[in-house]
């Protein structure tokens, strides 16, 4: 079974939504549903008093954890998590990531973790797939991508967030903004923002090149280095 994190329904309490999900996918009794609901809330560190809360009564982070709890009501093979931690502070993020990792190891499901936050997944994922404008820009083992980003966009991303310990220098980020998907540039989609752009980048669609087991969509890597 595949389990995605759906948005919570604003007009139902957490308990009601969990009951609906359980009724749709199983024939658990009312008491079993109640017990399971409490259990999954505890798994994500939410006080079961919130079973009777409506989504607007939960904080942003609690809503995200409640969504994860919903996905865990049944034991899935694959859990797709779309920005599950984006509203959390770092302590809660870390402990949620550790919880997800533990649950994943214990229950054996695979996780596709969709996120903006490269630094967060750096410690938790096996492989990293960097998307740009609807295409794979790079796919590498996580550690390799951090040590040696192959695509200029991956490189820019690694430079785009402030640091907590190093010097507090002004950052420029990546200039420009992601392209309009209905009106894509010809050739490399990152070319308009790329500091290393060359004439050949915009000549034709760039394929994915294989570089030491990684995949990268950049003409500078065409000879596999």
């Amino acid at each position: 079974m595949q389990s995605a994190m759906n948005a919570l329904n604003p007009v139902l309490t957490v308990a009601e939504q969990m009951r609906d999900a359980c009724r749709a996918h199983s024939n658990m009794s009312r008491a079993e549903i109640e017990a399971r609901s409490r259990e999954v809330l505890r798994l994500v560190s939410i006080d079961p008093v919130h079973l009777h809360s409506y989504p607007h009564q939960l904080s942003g982070g609690m809503r995200q954890r409640a969504m994860i709890a919903m996905a865990l009501l049944f034991t899935p093979d694959l859990v797709i998590m779309d920005e599950p931690t984006s509203a959390l502070d770092v302590v809660a993020q870390r402990s949620l990531m550790v919880q997800i990792k533990e649950l994943q190891e214990r229950l054996g499901f695979a996780v596709i973790f969709v996120t903006h936050d490269m630094s967060l997944v750096s410690h938790f994922s096996d492989r990293l797939l960097v998307m740009y404008a609807g295409q794979v820009a790079e796919m590498s083992k996580t550690r390799e991508l951090f040590d040696r980003p192959l695509h200029p966009y991956s490189h820019g991303l690694l430079e785009a967030f402030p640091s907590i310990r190093g010097p507090n220098a002004r950052l420029a980020g990546i200039p420009g903004s992601p392209p309009d998907l209905a009106n894509l540039p010809t050739g490399c989609r990152f070319a308009p923002r790329c500091p290393l752009v060359e004439p050949r980048c915009t000549a034709a669609e760039v394929p994915l090149y294989s570089v030491n087991g990684s995949l990268v969509r950049c003409v500078l890597r065409e000879n596999g280095r």
């Binding site: 502070d89 770092v90 302590v91 993020q93 870390r94 402990s95 550790v98 990792k101 936050d117 490269m118 630094s119 967060l120 750096s122 410690h123 938790f124 996580t142 550690r143 951090f146 690694l158 640091s163 907590i164 310990r165």
Partner: peptide, 18 residues
Amino acid sequence: LVSAVPDPRAELGLADAR
């Protein structure tokens, strides 16, 4: 809080205890 800030430049792996 400060110690939990992820630092991608640091050694990868589950260094911190839960």
